[in-house]
Design a protein around this nucleic acid. Structure first.
Lengths: 229, 229
DNA sequence: CGGTGTGAATCTGTTCACAGCC
DNA sequence: GGCTGTGAACAGATTCACACCG
């Protein structure tokens, strides 16, 4: 029942990275990490790592570092992945199938518990061992199967409508793969995964690099390793 | 030959959003937008929009707004999408196929010009009308077909190796769909698209919402519409 | 020593408010 | 009146530097 200080937004992304690195190290049998070691692997400074970890209940021991397992658990708990989330996938097209096929989500605290599609040709087929259901049965399924979040993987034009249905059915969050901004009633958080925006970010980054042919004396601090999800 | 002031990182993502909205409006026949109109559609304030547009060569007219077409072009040019980029897709599995199938990239300034895979069973098959080639032919293809960027859509374990091959072959940027951090030589920018990190961000957002049951008097400013790609 | 935790200083981005133009 | 462009105030995040612990 700690007051749980709010985590700075940019830190959240980094925590995900740390977590991934920690799991790798845990699998490799390492039992402690230093902030600078962890930072090096993730492309940030040790000071940054320490600050980030400071926003959650810290566990580091001076002279030693952090316990890998302990820290991983602490991060999971901070970002809310200590419990498991149940997700409904809407849209069993290409992206939808790709997501369903990536079976590892379950280990990572996310379970795709249902899949829906509008097209009669797709409904009733199996996708990664899961039966695709018609859109009509979505609201009832959401409520009865205790689904927390909706994943939108339908074409752009259909996304807004799906979002409204999901919210009306009571999901508590939406992961949106459609390249459009969704407007929904209430306070339901939405996270967009936008391939095109990612490509555009990359395009800019590439343009800037080649435009500036390694300026003057020292290299720009932090020039290497700028990364966003 | 303008000195082209550097665009603040967070602004880049917003510019992508604006661009999408502008294209929608252009298609709808609108010819001008106000900063606040554009902002409302994208979930940011008018002042923010104006500041963002200020970093590129501005074109707004007081009392009127911005020319939709003109502004779209200006944004494209600022983020480097005025010219077209040629991309190589590595990995023709689920995500790879999903990307290839999303045919609209070409309209948006990105052309998937080649696809590669390691698995003999996949090589030689067609994916979205494109022949999948073996990894061996990657370096030569990159050079000969003037490919700018590589898209990594292979399993986690293989990603690092692929990244090195791509960089050695001379790509100028990498879009990485594998859930691992890549370390490459030189200054090649990398943008990660990490589904799991996105889910984790959503998990945190949902947890925070339900933890705080609508505190006190006024709602937190900017509580609605927080969004990241 | 090696390494954490943290206040203080700095930097970066956002919001405000208003002068000026249509 | 409506709307842009921008300096000035503000808020937030990162970096620095150092006290303190094992």
């Amino acid at each position: 029942m700690t007051g749980r200080a709010r985590i700075p937004r940019p830190a959240v992304q980094r925590l995900s990275m740390y977590l991934r690195e920690l799991e790798r190290r845990e699998a490799a049998g390492e039992s402690t990490v230093s902030s600078s070691g962890l930072g090096a692997a993730c492309g940030v400074t040790g000071a940054q790592v320490r600050k980030d970890l400071g926003s959650l209940g810290r566990t580091g021991r001076p002279g030693i570092g952090y316990g890998v397992h302990e820290l991983a658990r602490s991060i999971r708990s901070a970002i809310g992945v200590h419990r498991s989330w149940r997700a409904a996938l809407v849209g069993a097209g290409n992206i939808g199938r790709a997501l369903a096929a990536y079976g590892r989500f379950q280990d990572e605290g996310f379970e795709i518990a249902a899949a829906f599609d509008r097209a009669p040709g797709v409904v009733g087929r199996r996708v990664a061992g899961m039966m695709v259901e018609p859109m009509d049965s979505l609201p009832k399924a959401i409520r009865e199967r205790g689904i927390d979040i909706g994943i939108i993987a339908v074409p752009t034009e259909a996304a807004q409508g799906v979002a409204e249905v999901l919210v009306a059915a009571g999901v508590r969050g939406i992961l949106n793969f459609a390249a459009t901004r969704l407007h929904v009633a209430g306070e339901v958080p939405i996270v967009d995964v936008d391939f095109r925006a990612a490509l555009e970010r990359l395009a800019l980054e590439v343009s800037e690099r080649s435009a500036r042919p390694e300026r003057g004396g020292r290299s720009t601090p932090g020039a290497r390793a700028r990364r966003l999800s």
